[in-house]
Each structure stands twice: as structure tokens, then as C-alpha cells.
Amino acid sequence: MSVVEVLFLLLGLAALGSALLVVSTKNMVHAALWLVVTLASIAGIYLLLAAEFVAWVQVLIYVGAVVVLLLFALMLTRAPTGPQPDTTVARVLPAAAVAVLVAALLATTVVAGFTGVRLDLDGAVVGSAATTGETIFEKWVLPFEVLSVLLLAALVGAIVLSRLRTDDTEDRGRPREQRDAQEVRR
């Protein structure tokens, strides 16, 4: 067993274990922090699979930006930092059944379909920044530009949504019961 295989197994086990903790821990902030471990392990797997630039983008955007956004959302929505009775047996059982079915279906499909196929990484072209840049700006220019327009649209949409104050800007100072009463009268 080569070094790459051992590293892949270790990173894969770390990713799976921390992903299980992301979906099962009762503490919401801990879930976001375990997500960091999962995403960093996946970045290491990208490095092993000769996708260097994707790995660093994963670290920058996912570990850097997305997790920080999620943590901000948890704090701005005043998520309780203590343990939460979020999951009951009546919710866990059907969800676990569906997840196990999905896992069984996908796993049997990929294992049956690709048994015996070797992933030869010795001569693979490493997707460094130079390679990826040449590829994107020579072969994938149009999707890249469309994607930048989409990112701009999403950004404008997020700004508009967060400036949207429904129409109760004027009675924000009053307690919620009065606003509710006004809502019922309306």
C-alpha cells in the first residue's frame, strides 16, 4: 500500500467521521467547526488527486468564507450555544433510513461499476494554478463569464434581500405583541 493510499484512507476517514459529527452533534457551533474539519480533509483529498488549485480554492472559499458566513448566520439568528434537543427518534429513524438507502444504492453502483479500475496518479498532470488558468481562459471562457454574471446576480440579490425590511420599519421599536395585533387587524 503506497503512501498516497494510506493518506487517502486517513483523510477519508477523517472526512467521514467529522461529517457524521456535523449532522449529529447537538451543539450548533460545534457543527460548524466540525464542518471545517470535513472541508479541510476534502481539500487534502483534492491534493492527493492532483487537483492542487481546487484544493487551495476549497481552503480559501469553503473553510475561509462559507464557514464564517454560516457561523455569522448562527450568531445573528441567536442560535443557542448550548446543547439542543434538535433530533428526536421520530425524526432520526426515517432520515436514517433514507440516508442508508441512498448510501447503499450509490455505493453498490460505484463499487460494482468500477471494481478493478485503477486510478493511476503517477503520470497525472497536476492541476496547478498555471494549468488551471490556461484551461479556464482558453477552453472554458464562456462558462467562466456566465458564472461571473451569476455571482454578481446572487450578490445583488443578497444585498436586496438583506435591505428588504418588509413594511414594518416604522414599528420596529414596539414589542412583538403589538405588531402581531396590528398584523391581525390588517
Binding site: 487517502f8 460505484v110 468500477f114 485503477r118 486510478l119
Partner: peptide, 9 residues
Amino acid sequence: MPLWWPLLL
């Protein structure tokens, strides 16, 4: 490594 390792993961 076998190709199905990353696919299974």
C-alpha cells in the same frame, strides 16, 4: 489506488 475508493467516499 482503486478508483472506487474516492467514489465510495
